[in-house]
């Protein structure tokens, strides 16, 4: 039998694990219609950038690269066929599964969005790439929003909010500590959201009480504790997903590569960064499929 003291501690623990509510976005000014699948096709002299298109908003433009998951990860269909139903089944399971994972299963895949950011540094630095994995009539899509220079972060964030606000469950790796707080900070800086109060809810906007943030780092730690040397994403990728990246750009080199890209317009590093980001998202998806025991 649990002692009163232990019971009290568990209750405290459950309270602190309650999922973070995502503030709803307040788009600034009158922008054009919210369909992010923009307007003009990419102009001819956008050479140097990977294939994609420009998205134009009132605050400026940014680049958008899109490909189906199939084209990036051919075994996707098979993997999804195996993992998808099992994950959905977990929604109905009555055991001690954390609420977040239950919701993830329930929402998979149409109401789920996977997110991974690339930034110019740790705290306080700008977001230049937002990688998203989400469902569409064409199947799972990998969408990457890229700021081609420093001024494009704001339109990028506006597009990002539109994607994220439409889904019930956000999945990240270490997103509760890094990605999401950074998105809130940068959005505050660009005054896209009203000043958040200490409960991190946009004042005056109806909060999406039914939205969830599932940070797989925490679940991975719990699930595979003691079995792996550490819980880094690429470690999990190797041991759990059975994949090994050759020739990937180290995370520490990414900011400098981006600065070079902005200054010179040269692309080689940018291709590597986009690939790195895409692989991270694929791993995130695979982990989600295996996270439920």
């Amino acid at each position: 039998m649990l002692s009163e003291q232990v019971r009290a501690r568990l209750a405290l623990l459950r309270r602190t694990l309650r999922p973070v509510r995502m503030p709803a976005a307040l788009p600034r000014d009158a922008g054009p219609a919210s369909d992010p699948y923009g307007t003009a096709a990419c102009p001819p002299d956008a050479s140097g950038l990977p294939e994609g298109r420009e998205v134009v908003r009132a605050s400026g433009g940014h680049w958008l690269i899109e490909q189906t998951l199939e084209s990036l990860w051919p075994a996707a269909a098979a993997s999804l066929a195996r993992g998808g139903p099992r994950l959905r089944q977990a929604a109905g399971a009555a055991d001690d599964l954390p609420d977040e994972l239950r919701e993830l299963g329930r929402a998979f895949a149409h109401q789920v969005i996977f997110l991974d950011l690339e930034t110019c540094g740790l705290s306080g630095a700008m977001i230049f790439l937002a990688g998203l994995l989400h469902d569409s009539p064409r199947g799972l899509l990998l969408t990457q929003l890229l700021a081609r220079n420093y001024a494009e972060e704001q339109p990028l964030l506006e597009s990002l909010w539109e994607y994220v606000a439409q889904r019930d469950v956000l999945v990240t790796f270490n997103g509760k500590s890094f990605d999401w707080p950074l998105i809130v900070d940068r959005s505050t800086l660009h005054r896209l959201i009203a000043v958040p109060d200490h409960r991190h809810r946009a004042a005056g906007a109806p909060p999406r009480d039914d939205a969830w943030h599932c940070d797989l780092l925490h679940h991975a730690r719990r699930r595979w504790r003691g079995q792996l040397p550490n819980c880094r994403l690429q470690t999990l990728e190797r041991y759990i997903c059975g994949r090994h990246r050759g020739d990937d750009i180290p995370g520490s080199e990414i900011p400098a590569a981006y600065h070079d890209f902005v200054r010179t317009g040269q692309c080689p590093a940018m291709h590597a960064i986009l690939r790195h980001n895409a692989l991270d998202l694929v791993t995130l998806l695979q982990l989600a499929l295996c996270i439920v025991p």
Binding site: S123, G124, Y150, A151, H259, V262, R263
Partner: peptide, 18 residues
């Protein structure tokens, strides 16, 4: 010297960390 970069009439910090 590459510490600042100009985009659309504004100067941004283009160096390393904070």
């Amino acid at each position: 010297s590459g510490q600042l970069a100009q985009v659309a009439g504004k100067l941004y910090f283009a160096g390393g960390q904070n």
